[in-house]
Write a protein that binds this DNA or RNA. Structure first.
Lengths: 244, 244
DNA sequence: CGGTAAATTGACCTGGGTCAATAAATGTGG
DNA sequence: CCACATTTATTGACCCAGGTCAATTTACCG
């Protein structure tokens, strides 16, 4: 069960200098281990740290007035989370571990230091932010304008890709690691309808399920159904300031 | 018809030093004037500049395979747009002027320089990104989990607030500046249903319409219907690195 | 092996979409 | 300032994707 640090993630975008790598590991504070189901940050609670996922899987969500839940994002090793601590005194979202997970905490002041000493890393933070913003606009368009089946297909591909980023051995078979209710809360559907759509995807021979595993049978066709766009392609970081 | 620059916007978050203000105006390149309806950036086209809105109103959107449109964001004076040029060679979204508008272009390399010389401004860029990310999660939750009426009410408040940020004289009456079809493309609805919901909000005495103007009659109740959360409250930037 | 959470399915309902026709509002050229 | 051409806004009639409710079944867990 591999893990991935922030430096690994950023290193996939540019070649980090030794000084930068060192600065990134200096950023990391104490490690926290979370049991599956544990809450790391609660919506509306005070927060002043951000975290990097080292191992496991988490999700962030908001609760609405009527008790319904919208899952905003799933979090995997190498992801930065609770970046909102850089702006808000109280957290706008709840973060819960979906699996036993390890996260490393960093204090906000450490980010300030990083920004002053390593401009290129600061730029990379902006870049990561931006990639995630675009991924979020994809989800926005999916919720606003696409069918239930399309949204679920897109979620399956997204989770598979996230898992593969951590463990390159993963190809078409992977653990979804979500209940159908969670899939529904991420895609704006009910668990009942998620179930019906999964069955349809199965009948269409696009996926297979069994033993807690999901298998993509026809990736090209699934990607077409999902309206899938690869947001890690077409990246151009040639403008970044020089490394230190 | 007032305008607002990037320095004005950032100056609402912190007190800028002279050096910072100077750096921000140095960032700005040539001004471009757009007629209503003009396209500034086209989805999938190459792009290498970002812009700051000086005057007017624009929108960004994506088109889906079936020809439907999802509007991602409305843009007002002081807003930075096309930040994705910092990451992607080709634009992930289209940007169109909804009104005659002025924008100032900045080259990506100017941002790199800014980052190296003014760490605090770089931090502020991250902060703005983050505020917008949270605003976007609100929209995500709205699309995924709330009714048509709620989404439209939220949009009305959002537009009013954006207009007020530019012109403080605006209180309850403002120009929406959108067709019902555009409201629908922003909220994931059809123009027909938008029309029905606007009528209901009117019948509920929450809003009034006339002469191209929108009036909020009962803001407290409208905010409740809209599930509205003020994302400019509760900001805490005490951690930022020192100004230069 | 009982007990609880998760998955499935069937029957039925409704919020919002579709289609189509009118009516207003906005522009445009002259 | 007028007559015509486009967009937009409005409404009514009807439809369907996805929700609701309620029962089973299956999988997982100590």
């Amino acid at each position: 069960m591999p893990d991935r640090r922030l430096a690994d993630r950023l290193g996939e975008l540019v070649n980090l200098t030794e000084s930068e790598t060192a600065a990134l590991s200096g950023l990391q504070g104490r490690m926290r281990t979370l049991r599956r189901g544990a809450t790391l940050v609660r919506e509306h609670d005070r927060h002043a740290e951000l975290f990097v996922v080292r191992h496991g899987m988490l999700m962030s969500f908001v609760m609405l007035a009527d008790g319904s839940r919208q899952i905003l994002r799933f979090l995997f090793p190498g992801d930065i989370l609770s970046l909102s601590a850089l702006v808000y005194r109280n957290s706008p979202e709840t973060i819960v571990a979906l699996d036993d997970s390890d996260v490393v905490a960093c204090d906000r002041s450490a980010v300030a230091v990083l920004m002053a000493t390593h401009p290129r890393l600061c730029g990379l933070l902006l870049v990561i932010n931006q990639i995630e913003r675009v991924a979020m606009t994809d989800r926005l368009a999916a919720l606003g304008r696409t069918s239930a089946k399309t949204r679920i297909a897109a979620l399956l591909l997204e989770i598979r890709n996230s898992r593969r980023a951590v463990d390159p051995r993963i190809a078409t078979t992977f653990t979804l690691g979500l209940t159908q209710e969670e899939v529904g809360d991420a895609t704006g559907l009910t668990s009942v309808h998620v179930n019906r759509m999964l069955r349809e995807l199965e009948n269409d021979r696009l996926i297979a399920r069994g033993g807690g595993m999901m298998t993509i049978l026809d990736e090209a066709r699934l990607a077409r159904v999902a309206n899938y766009v690869d947001r890690f392609a077409g990246i151009d970081l040639s403008w970044l300031p020089p490394a230190r």
